[in-house]
Design a protein around this nucleic acid. Structure first.
Lengths: 259, 259
DNA sequence: GAGTGGTCTAGACCACTCC
DNA sequence: GAGTGGTCTAGACCACTCA
């Protein structure tokens, strides 16, 4: 494997513009190859990937170079290293990382044994609205699946979500299948539709509950609720899901770490 | 430098319990030494630290080992590497990372040139309430500085904050000094009180504005607001600041990345 | 005991910054 | 050109898992 150019040298006539990188390090090329293999399903979520030594000989580089590529993919939660066992493709099915994207935490530690129940209210095929089209990067005339559901924790409704998925990749997803499936939605998307959510961006606001929302979450009209708009991405930064959630923060809070 | 034990071997009589690590890698020991040097002020924020080669010979390890230690400190934003120049102690004074902990983003890109103005309403020395004592890890009878302020963006009040600091380390902090200082509070804490905020935890809820809060933020009574409780830590995971903020999310949102 | 990832080393060369 | 961090290599040994 040879070091290679990733882009032409930056024009030197644009003062102040950042110079484009001309060379990409070997380990970045390996990382890109591994990412593509993941994207194309060569290794499925939960699978053991080849050992570092084997990948090194396959790509014709040293083990250290493969190692650095895998290090970055592991830091991005695409792979998981397990000493003595090997490196695995990350999955939403593991107990530790279930609900990895849900940052709600109960106020009382006693409520940690979270029984989460789900009520699916709707699952329709609809024409995508303009903002959904824009955020999901689909065509204006495309159809999307719209799912509405409520999450209850210890019997109390805590989250109301409005979920949009491109109809194509999720063909065959019905209310009945949603009801039947046990486990997180992202685990289902992964094993039944081959779409793995890798990262997400959230925009959070505070909003007053409308009468309809108040009824669903069993709070007074006007009650302040967290509005969480989440755009989730699959491999290669492709947006795949838009989720608009309302969180009742009477007995839970949204936890975030800054560094 | 020798590899050394960090704890006794785990009792083998507790099945299911995670085995305590017996050895700590060399690079972790180096990392701890570097962290201590930062904590004790051997290198101040903004300073250039010794080169990898020099640190390697000082500690009697290879450059690669020092490198790995610095890599982790850089990932935690304690150090900043600059190719060709050296490795620097991270600071809140740099243009890029100003307001690193404030996740509010304006809805309209046109408002990016954010003129942020601050009104300091109060700065008192008070006896710490029970919850402040617990969160800051101070003694029950200790005094704290309580600062109240409002942040205005483009003239509009957007954030109301209630800040608690241990009185000891921040002796001499007055309303007048707050007014006079240009730049982020954390930059001031760093250069004038030798306390650098390294990471923080936030608990986010939605609350309805009280009449007093509504007046301060110029919103209707009952308006939904983001309540952001932030606990900030200095080197060595020491809690140093408690901040209770109310964010008006009419024209801004709280941005978060999940991975 | 075989195989895996984790650590550590020593040395070479490259890219970048500054004088 | 000197000095810095960044990449890449090859090899040794360690810690862990599993059969």
């Amino acid at each position: 494997m040879q070091r290679m150019a990733t882009s032409v040298p930056a024009s030197s006539s644009a003062p102040g513009a950042a110079a484009a990188p001309v060379f990409s390090p070997l380990y970045q090329q390996i990382k890109a190859l591994l990412t593509r293999a993941l994207q194309e399903g060569e290794w499925k979520p939960g699978d053991l990937i080849p050992s570092e030594a084997e990948l090194a000989s396959r790509f014709g580089v040293s083990q250290g170079t493969v190692r650095k590529a895998i290090d970055e993919l592991a830091a991005e939660n695409l792979l998981i290293r397990r000493q003595g066992r090997g490196t695995f493709v990350s999955t939403h099915h593991e107990a530790q990382v279930k609900f990895r994207f849900l940052r709600l935490v109960p106020d009382t530690e006693s409520a940690q044994g979270l029984r989460m129940e789900r009520d699916f209210l709707e699952c329709h095929r609809v024409r995508a609205a303009a903002d959904v089209v824009r955020l999901l990067g689909i065509r204006a005339a495309d159809m999307v699946l719209q799912i509405r559901r409520i999450l209850r924790i210890a019997g109390e409704p805590v989250v109301y979500e409005d979920i949009y998925l491109p109809a194509g990749p999720f063909r065959g997803l019905t209310a009945e299948r949603l009801e039947r499936y046990r486990g997180p939605l992202y685990a289902m998307f992964e094993s039944e539709f081959g779409t793995r959510m890798v990262r997400a961006e959230e925009k959070i606001r505070a909003v007053n509950a409308t009468p309809h929302e108040a009824e669903l979450l069993r709070v007074p009209v006007g009650q302040a609720l967290l509005s969480v708009e989440r755009l989730s991405f699959s491999y290669g930064d492709q947006p795949v899901e838009l989720r608009r959630g309302l969180y009742s923060t009477a007995h839970h809070y949204y936890r975030n770490e800054l560094s």
